[in-house]
Design a protein around this nucleic acid. Sequence first.
DNA 1: CCATATGTTACTCG
DNA 2: ACGAGTAACATATG
Length: 270
Amino acid sequence: MPELPEVETLSSNLKELKIIDRSFKKIIVKCPKLIETPSFIPLLKDKKIKDIYRRAKFLIFSLQDDYFLLIHFRMSGHLFVSSRETLQKHEHILFILDDQRSLIYQDTRKFGRLYLTKNLGKYLNKLGPEPLSKDFTFEDFFSRLKKRKLKALLLDQTFVAGIGNIYADEALWEAKLHPEKDAKTLSILEAKSLFNAIKSVLEKGIKNRGTSLGKSIQNFSNVYKQFGGNQQYLNAYKKNGLPCRRCRTLMVCKKVVQRSSCFCPSCQKP
DNA sequence: CCATATGTTACTCG
DNA sequence: ACGAGTAACATATG
C-alpha cells in the first residue's frame, strides 16, 4: 500500500514521537513468514534505535551494533505506535519498547516483509535514484529512458525509487503523457515535464501526509492510525468516468502492465 | 460468485 | 538479454 509519500509520513511520525534512542525490550512474532530470517529476531533484544528513515518504499531502522531493520509494506502493511502489549486480528509482530510503548506491524494480506541485516546494500543497491534527492537529475533521467511503456518504467524501482500505482497515474496526468507511450520516444520537453511531475506529485503527497482511499483497514493510515489527506487532491487515480480537471473530457481506465491506469484520453494521447 | 485492491517476484513466450 | 504478459502470494470489500 504505502508508496514513497506514505512511508515518508511513517518515518516522520516516528521521529516526532521520539522513537529514536528507544530500544527493543521484547519482540513477539505471530507470523514468522513475514520476516526474511526469523531466527535473527532475538538479536533485536535490547538494541537501541539510532535512526529512522526511508529509502524507496522501505522504512529503515538503523540500530546499535550496525544492524538494520527494514520494513516493506507491500499492499496492506501498517505500522503504528501503541501502549498495548498484545496482538489483535491481522497484527503479526509486536515490538515492545523500553518506555511503555510498542510498535505493532499489522498486515491483512501478509504480503509485507521485514528484513534484519547488517548489509543494507543487499536491499538498496539495485534501487534507482530517490526522486526527491539531488542525485535525481534530469540528464540522468533522460539518458536512462528506454524502449518501454511509460507506466512500466515509472513503476520499475530500479529506474526511479518509490513510485507506485497512484503516483504513477498522477505524474502521467500532470505531464499529459499516455501510460502506454514508449518512454524512448519522449522529446526533451515531454521528459522534462514528466521529471517535474514526478517530483511535484510526490511532494504534494508528502505535504498532505499520504493518500488513504477508503476508510477500511486496507487503506493507508499513519503511526497514529490517522488517514492521510492527499486523496482529496488526486487528479487521475480512480477518476475514470469523471471529467478531467483540465479539459472536462471523461477519464478512462485501462489495464496497463497488469495495473489499472486512469488517464484522460484527450490530454494524454498515445 | 465475481472482480478488484496503494507491490513484488518468478515464470513463460517471443 | 529484454520486454510483455501471467500467475502467485492472502484477505477484504463492493
